[in-house]
Design a protein around this nucleic acid. Sequence first.
RNA 1: GCUCCCAUCGUCUAACGGUUAGGACGCGGCCCUCUCAAGGCCGUAAUACGGGUUCGAUUCCCGUUGGGAGCGCCA
Length: 476
Amino acid sequence: MIISDSKMNSTPKPRLRFAPSPTGHLHIGGARTALYNYLLARQTGGTFILRIEDTDLERSTPESIQAILNGMNWLKLKWDEGPFFQTKRFDLYQQHIDKLLKEGKVYPCFCTAEELDRKRKQAQSEKRKPMYDRTCFNLIKEEVRQKIDAGQPYCIRFKSPDSGETVVHDVIKGDVVVANKELDDLIIRRTDGSPTYNFTVVVDDVTMAITHVIRGDDHLNNTPRQIQLYEALGYPLPIFAHVPMILGSDRQRLSKRHGATSVIAYKEMGYLPDALLNYLARLGWSYKDQEEFTRPELIEKFSLKSCSVSAGVFNPEKLLWLNGVYIRKAKPDDLTTLIIPFLEKKGIQHIDKAVLLEGVKISQEKVKTLVEMAEMVDFFFMEVEPDEKLKVKFFTDETRPILKKIIDRLNALDPWAHDPIAAVFNHLVVETALGLGKIAQPVRVALTGRTVSAGVFEIIRILGKEKTLERIKKFV
RNA sequence: GCUCCCAUCGUCUAACGGUUAGGACGCGGCCCUCUCAAGGCCGUAAUACGGGUUCGAUUCCCGUUGGGAGCGCCA
């Protein structure tokens, strides 16, 4: 009886990781990968690990590390272990290299980057697949010794098998088989002594006891090489799952050209983290016809088995719609807290929280982002000045007498509440035989400076008698 | 060029080999309405192509075409 790989590898408590390289912000695709790992960890009672892959000393920056952490925190993708940094683990990698060296599974290569570059270009111009030609593998022992003694710099290459095939048992893609002759001897340690990606992932995933490797399918081509390294090292394989890419509207890999790709940019545009997560979850995964998922539902229902196998196009309109859904569902108190930075950004200093709460309640179902919501409530806290065009259109010889009446009647109003306020307007509708729109719209403009807002009766109520009358009086 | 992956409405996707091919976003129309939304109803639109297998293919197999990824001393 043969036990399947997945069975052999399924330990009671899964350990999953998200392993970004700190060379920029946390982007949409990375966030989704992080989310899938997170969801599975939570679903299974497993562990979610954050590992920073910073072996590229040239391009890794502290700012990027912070940006990734900020993104993760904003999305509330809480990790259980880490962040671990590969730059702090060089000793570990070196130990593994020494072991392979001793076993003759790797070898020093003295070829210079320039030489290799030349050969690569030549191969490409001859329409051949660029592969290392094993110049240094074929060196005899004596030559190797001489070069090393002479102090010639070298990197370390992995001697990959040249026959047979390597198969990836991928949970999403199925079995992917690659002929070993397609894989050349990859560099696992650079001339400067630092280890390279394909090697460090393997060592890390093994030493961190990662059970499930879930990542973008741009890594699928690397996986056979990594499997060879696992085998050379004598380590068991994790379960692999390669999630499809996220593309832009032109079906090219998602990039800045397609608009915002940074998670934090969505925060700044007034998106709610749970809305983004919900959207991302559904881009590449589905559960029947369901579109909206709370976080506990995602944790409960997410499955690699129902991940899609083909790339998906990022659709900002659908994300915007979903954000609107989340804003409508949100507790007014929470929105009140969230909206304050957006108001401050507009230069609004003194915010009456009670007024803001009321404002939030009446605009909640009219907006799709926090930015829009700030637009919708800002006039409560600042003087308004309608455009000249609006003034001309709404404050006319016809409307001024009506506004005057409104002022008088509101002034006499007691109590100051929605229904009496509505009654003032409704009586005027009857008296003047004008539509409510005709009467309410000039008031709206006087009060908010705009033609679009929440209901005027509510606005009048919240704004209070003094401010309401003051603002209308300016236009009679 | 070589290797790998992929292919259902414009987009995200659903459909034990048997469905009038379903849902969602968007778009259009109607209703509601103090503006804008929200909501309700209706509509629009897809199995890339060609061969097989089968009583029957969106579904399984092969090919073509198209798209994506990899081929770095990047990750």
